[in-house]
Each structure stands twice: as C-alpha cells, then as structure tokens.
C-alpha cells in the first residue's frame, strides 16, 4: 500500500501527472521572493561596478528593459504568454525549470 511502487493513478498507466492550473499562494510568495532576489543581485552588480567607475552593457540593458518585482503586474508575475493555450496565458509554474529562469516580459497586447 505504501512505498515507491504503490498503485496510484499516475503509476498504473496512462498519462496522469497533473500540475494544478494555478499557483498556490505560498508558491506565489516564494516566486516573489525569487524575483526580488534577482533584483537585488542586479542592484549589487550595478553598485559594485559604479564604485569602480565602470558600467556593463548587460546590466544597463536589464535595468532599462526589465521591470522590477514591484513594477510588475500580477498578470506578468504569475502567468506567461503561450500561443497554444486558450486566451494565450498559462501559469508560470508550467514553464520548465521556472524557479531557475527569469521570465518577466510578454508580447505586448497579450
């Protein structure tokens, strides 16, 4: 009844490995923390380089183009554009390796 080979619906054949369609509020919270952490790292890099009187193109571009966690809309924080999904949006937790990649911008109008 217990153990790694117990008979459950996902194991007894067929493709049944469900990811809930929306994030739980704790997932959302941890996701916001991760976004803020990345913002902090970019700020650290920028401050450190500025102290040496240097700049870096990638950091400048990130600051210019990417919204910070506070500036992002909830829609962009928790969902991403997907052309195959009805109404063109799916939860960000369906993105492969979503806790280790940055996905902040979406096509304008979607």
């Amino acid at each position: 009844m217990f153990g790694p080979f117990r008979l459950t619906n996902p194991l007894s054949g067929g493709l049944l490995w469900k990811i809930p369609w929306r994030l739980s509020r704790h997932q959302k919270y941890r996701h916001r923390e991760r976004l803020r952490k990345v913002d902090g790292i970019v700020a650290t890099l920028d401050a450190a380089l500025a102290r040496h009187g240097q700049t870096m193109r990638k950091v400048e571009r990130w600051k210019e183009e990417m919204p910070t966690e506070a500036e992002m809309l909830p829609k962009d924080k928790y969902t991403v554009f997907d052309r195959k999904v009805k109404r063109y949006r799916k939860g960000i937790h369906k993105v492969p390796k979503w806790t280790r990649v940055s996905q902040r911008l979406n096509p304008p109008g979607f």
Partner: peptide, 21 residues
C-alpha cells in the same frame, strides 16, 4: 574581483547564486 567580465558572468547565472560585494 569586481570587473565587467565577472559581472557579465554573474548576469548569466543570477538566478542560481547569491552575490555580495
């Protein structure tokens, strides 16, 4: 060391690391 090249490398792995100066 704090150099633009190291900063660029950190930008590539910024989701995986913790950085302090």
């Amino acid at each position: 060391p704090v150099t633009p090249s190291v900063a660029g490398q950190i930008m590539r792995i910024k989701e995986l690391v913790d950085v302090k100066e």
